[in-house]
């Protein structure tokens, strides 16, 4: 009991952008009245993965495996769709080892939000290049400049079918809070890629470097009819390639016209939302609640 009240020891480095993201989430949890009864934070492995343990609100947290937070979150959400599920993952987590889950989540459009702590490095393992580090850049731990090209998280999410795609900046606590809040309120799979300075290992994309470049997007991201999809996606992708001189922040794309996975399940299982798997009784007085006889009889061949 005291263990809950004891503040978890936060071992992030001084000045880490993760603090900004954490603060945004604490503020929005307050605003949206999120607690363990309606909210679960599911994280991967990395500095970012520890976030649920550090949140001061009375929430529940599931700190999973490197790259697999999306899969765990999918199991949690589909078994209990009444829970708000927030995924907290690193850029290595999401676009390296776990990229297959990231892409396939777009196909499902489950009503969840993934917040990526995008710092260009594998922070926890001492600064190797992450999939978002640009080619030619040599951050502190690299013996030579990075020879891999970088993934464009915004474009990848759009191509994968994400229906809410946004970018925030970790030190812009209020802006990031608003973006994550809108992502949570969005009906469907949402990405908020948060540019997160890692003062310990990324000595290129620093707070000052970002501050000199970020600006608020000036496009209308909302899809109002299915015909608008190609035009809106193209505009968003085009903006997502701005980087060296100017870096846009805000919502790139939002489309609530695509049915969620939950809605698709509901077509097949009409009481899915009102009698979801986590609610269903499994036994009655110690015996199976499922009438196996009936299932087997239904399969009887003449």
């Amino acid at each position: 009991m005291e263990e809950h009240e004891q503040k978890e020891f936060n071992d992030w480095c001084i000045g880490c952008g993760d603090f900004g993201i954490l603060r945004s989430e604490e503020l929005l949890a307050e605003e949206l009245k999120l607690d363990y009864k309606n909210f679960v934070v599911v994280s991967g492995i990395g500095c970012s993965g520890k976030a649920p343990h550090f949140l001061t609100q009375k929430i529940s947290g599931v700190h999973t495996l490197h790259g697999r937070a999306m899969a765990f979150a999918t199991g949690i959400k589909l078994s209990n769709p009444s829970l708000e599920v927030l995924i907290e993952a690193g850029d290595g987590d999401t676009f390296g080892i776990g990229v297959g889950h990231f892409v396939n989540a777009g196909r499902r459009n489950i009503d969840m939000t993934i917040v990526v702590h995008d710092n260009g490095v594998y922070g926890l393992t001492k600064g190797q290049a992450s999939p978002t580090l640009k080619r030619g850049e040599k951050t502190k731990s690299l013996p030579k400049p990075n020879i891999n090209d970088s993934i464009n998280p915004i474009a990848l999410a759009l191509a994968s079918g994400y229906t809410f795609v946004a970018r925030g900046f970790a030190y812009d606590v209020n802006g990031t809070k608003e973006l994550i809040k809108k992502a949570i309120q969005h009906k469907g799979m949402a990405l908020v890629d948060v540019l997160q300075p890692c003062p310990t290992y990324n000595d290129i994309n620093t707070n000052d470097w970002y501050k000199a470049r970020v600006y608020n997007l000036d496009i209308d991201p909302v899809v109002k009819s299915i015909e608008e999809v190609p035009e809106k996606v193209n505009a968003a992708i085009s903006k997502s390639y701005e980087w060296e001189q100017k870096i846009p922040l805000g919502i790139f794309y939002q489309n609530e016209l695509v049915p969620t996975f939950e809605e698709r399940l509901n077509e097949d299982i009409p009481d899915y939302m009102s009698n979801y798997p986590a609610m269903q009784p499994i036994d009655s007085n110690g015996k199976t609640a499922t009438k196996y006889e009936n299932l087997i009889r239904a399969r009887k061949v003449a």
Binding site: T64, R68, A71, S79, L83
Partner: peptide
Amino acid sequence: NMAVGSSLTGARS
């Protein structure tokens, strides 16, 4: 990992 996540909600997985 989906199955394990699901089991944390009380569903049999």
